[in-house]
């Protein structure tokens, strides 16, 4: 994906940016709100402007996978961008309110309200946590579409009920709720989890530039860092 953002083919480049934006816009927005104390409106404008800038310029030319993960590189770029914007106070010149991307900022605001401010997590670490959340959200969405395509909506619904909802339920409760034999619940859920794992790794492949970066990011996402 990172390579594709530099592609000469406009279709390939656009697709790469779509993935980039879907995985990163929420972490970017929340980072601007929390670290840079931007109001919701300003953060929305800056998020749009940031991704607009990444599309316009050869923004990722400076990225070297040997030095850091792309996620860290992007956060540093964002901090540099936000700092410059603040210094120059160019919000009005930028033409505040220009909408380049269609992003659901309200949902991001809703999530922000649930974040405990004093939980000891640095804003930098929170950016990375938000990125994991975005990767999962992207994978869940792809899993849903994948299940729909294959007529396996029950599989997805079971997965959503068991793994996405806060309430803890047992397989027996699921069997009762979905009027399925317990063995089917076990098998469907195992299948959905297997596909979910495959899709998460697929998303990570798209978001990373090298095999090594992929493996490191996969460990981070799985929560099994060395």
């Amino acid at each position: 994906m990172i390579v594709a953002t530099r592609s000469a083919d406009p279709v390939e480049r656009r697709q790469a940016f779509e993935i980039l934006v879907s995985a990163y816009w929420k972490p970017v927005y929340k980072h601007l709100r929390m670290k840079w104390n931007q109001t919701d409106e300003d953060a929305q404008d800056l998020t749009q402007a940031f991704f607009g800038r990444t599309m316009e310029n050869a923004f990722f030319q400076g990225y070297d996978p040997a030095k850091s993960s792309f996620r860290t590189y992007l956060r540093l770029c964002l901090d540099g961008f936000a700092s410059n914007e603040r210094k120059a106070a160019r919000r009005l010149k930028r033409g505040g309110g220009a909408q380049i991307l269609s992003l659901d900022f309200e949902s991001a605001e809703g999530e922000l309200r649930q974040i405990e401010i004093a939980d000891g997590v640095s804003v930098e670490e929170r950016f990375h946590q938000e990125w994991v959340r975005s990767v999962f959200a992207l994978a869940v969405e792809r899993l849903r579409a994948f299940c729909d395509e294959r007529g396996k909506t029950s599989h997805y619904r079971l997965f959503a009920r068991y793994d996405l909802e806060e309430e803890r339920v047992t397989y027996a409760q699921l069997a009762q709720e979905f009027t399925l034999p317990a063995t089917d619940v076990t098998n469907y859920l195992a299948w959905a989890r297997r596909e979910f794992r495959r899709i998460v790794l697929e998303v990570l492949r798209e978001l990373t530039a090298t095999e090594r970066e992929f493996r490191e990011e996969a460990r981070y996402v799985l929560g099994v860092q060395k």
Binding site: F136, A137, D163, L164, A190, R193, V221
Partner: peptide, 17 residues
């Protein structure tokens, strides 16, 4: 969406078969 729950789901091994 609980990230830790999903991480558990990703890590949990399925020994069926």
């Amino acid at each position: 969406m609980n990230v830790e729950r999903l991480r558990e789901a990703l890590r949990a091994p399925d020994f069926s078969g």
